[in-house]
Amino acid sequence: MKTRSRLEKVLNAGLFAVTAECGPPKGSNLSVLEKKAGFLKGRVDAVNVTDNQTAIVRMSSLAACSILKGLGHEPVLQMVTRDRNRIALQSDLFGAYALGISNVLCLTGDHHSFGNQKQALGVFDLDSIQLVRTVKDMRDEGRIIGGDEIDDPPKMFIGAAANPFADPVGFRVARLAKKIEAGADFIQTQCVFNLHRFDEFMRQAREAGLTEKVKILAGITPLKNAGMARYMATQVAGMDVPEELIKRISGVPEGNQAAEGIKIAAETISRVREIKGVAGIHLMAIEWEEKVPEILEQAGLASRPQV
């Protein structure tokens, strides 16, 4: 074990891991977090806390992680390089570890032109892969960028993202390899809707020997209705929602579309579980955390193992 992360324990034990995403509130309202935490309690191995997702200002990921930790959750601190330079990122990593946080997901982040602060200066001092390496050097060498020694280095279980559906498709596995080489211990993928393409990505990853080196968690997002399916297909960067899926959810009456979306999510989970090299799932129920228990029950993942 490299860290005291519970997620690392679950994955190292070869158990099928379940993580879920939790978006912090657009303000300081603690009760929103408490409510979401309640839906996820006992259902997941770790909770990812998004970092100003889609460049919309929300409660800081670090603060929300600490609050969730206090509520008995195992947080995964999402960190984007869009808003903070290397001084701030490294400082937050020290703070996060001191607060008992042992997992970090290193991301570049959605461009600020998507959010509600379009006039902001995009920082991008580091990219996501450089952040992965930075966190690894902190843990394994006890040093920050530039070589200064750390007094009690943060020991983080290091995550990175992969998008099997983005272009240039031919470079996606090479980029995954680069993230692993930089120090990623686990990978959480973009939402899987196109199972065919995901299967192909995993095949290439296995062939390159990458599934031996890293734990891959397949991203799952339940569709609330046909409108959301179409929106994800056309308006969200890096998303691949096949036409047949849009047809399927459009084909049921409006009142039943949510149930159909949950059914699709549960089916997708069962399908990705059969793919060799998939070590778990990462459930991103966007502002729909209350449905996580139902989705997991339908997928046969009702409870989590004790480790």
Partner: peptide
Amino acid sequence: SKRLMNGPCGGSKDG
């Protein structure tokens, strides 16, 4: 647009 040094982000589509 993000000054990435180690490869394309997940938002690249059709070039």
